[in-house]
């Protein structure tokens, strides 16, 4: 099956171990959330896949081809990153033109249409754009590139709520029209939790979770109510976190819900992805 395979990859910067023995697979046609705290190694992983960095150990393949220094393999991948890699004196329309020349399937008409929707002036130079519009032109470019693997590193940085909402809608429309692998790396977990199918969580350079989002969330639940009732219920259970406010408590419990032991005053709800992430990555 076509995929991006990351095999025992490590990356060290001087004495800093940014990634340690990461083994992972990004399968075709799925939307992944790549989550991790600041400095966890998410951007490093994406930079390794897209040939911007070299691994210290291990191997990355794209549809069976080595990713490193391989134009053919890299043409299957597009990384939209936080850093601007386009020349600052280049105008947005020139970015579209040149991307179209490097990536043959780039839809320039669609890019211009999206620029109009976002009210992006394509005659402006890259250096003249605000933080938000700097993300927007990169997003538009990414959405219009015809590649089977699309990586979005902090795609909504600097975007207002309206533009973020537009982006998520466009992303899903793009995915529906042309299913492909999309990997979104972001800190806005609540916003993407409704979009992603698969989740990868990196903590201190290591992958601690790599599974289906629904499966992960179904491995636990939240129980809320009076503090004393919650404390009584969670006795002997694997509690990964507690939120307390006054006399009320919410406990995040791993495992299946024990309905027989559940007090009528207690409320059970689905595990929240952001809460689960916080609990899993808190040291």
């Amino acid at each position: 099956m076509p995929s991006i395979a990351i095999n025992h990859v490590s990356k060290q910067f001087n004495k800093v171990h940014a990634l340690e023995d990461v083994t992972l697979q990004f399968e075709e046609g799925k939307i992944y959330g790549l989550l991790g705290r600041n400095g966890a190694g998410k951007s490093t992983l994406l930079n390794l896949i897209s040939n911007r960095l070299f691994p210290t150990a291990g191997e990355i393949t794209i549809n069976g081809r080595p990713a490193c220094e391989n134009d053919q393999a890299q043409r299957l991948v597009y990384l939209m990153s936080e850093k601007t890699f386009y020349p600052e004196t280049m105008r947005v329309k020139e970015v579209f033109d040149w991307t179209g020349r490097f990536y043959k399937g780039f839809d320039k008409n669609e890019a211009i249409r999206l620029a109009h929707e976002f009210k992006l002036d394509i005659t402006k130079k890259v250096k003249g754009l605000s933080t938000g519009y700097s993300s927007i032109y990169k997003l538009i470019t990414a959405l219009c590139v015809d590649v089977p693997y699309l990586f979005l590193d902090e795609p909504v940085l600097g975007l207002d709520a309206n533009h973020r909402d537009m982006f998520y809608k466009l992303l899903l429309e793009s995915y529906a029209a042309r299913p492909r692998t999309i990997v979104i790396s972001t800190h806005l977990i609540e916003e993407i939790s409704g979009i992603i199918e698969e989740i990868v969580i990196i903590k201190e350079g290591r992958v601690i979770k790599a599974q289906n989002c629904e499966e992960l969330l179904s491995q636990g639940y939240c129980v809320s109510g009076k503090a004393s009732d919650v404390d009584a219920y969670v006795q002997g259970k694997e509690v990964i976190g507690i939120d307390a406010l006054g006399g009320l408590k919410t406990a995040y419990v791993m495992g299946q819900c024990d309905k027989s032991a559940l007090d009528a005053n207690l409320e059970v709800s689905k595990m929240d992805l952001q809460k689960l992430f916080i609990q899993l990555t808190n040291s």
């Binding site: 040939n51 391989n70 134009d71 890299q74 043409r75 991948v77 990384l79 890699f85 490097f102 990536y103």
Partner: peptide, 16 residues
């Protein structure tokens, strides 16, 4: 530097 960034952004290896 500018060329390297542009090329790495656009699926072009250092060899190329």
């Amino acid at each position: 530097k500018e060329d390297m960034r542009m090329f790495l952004q656009n699926a072009t290896s250092r060899k190329t």
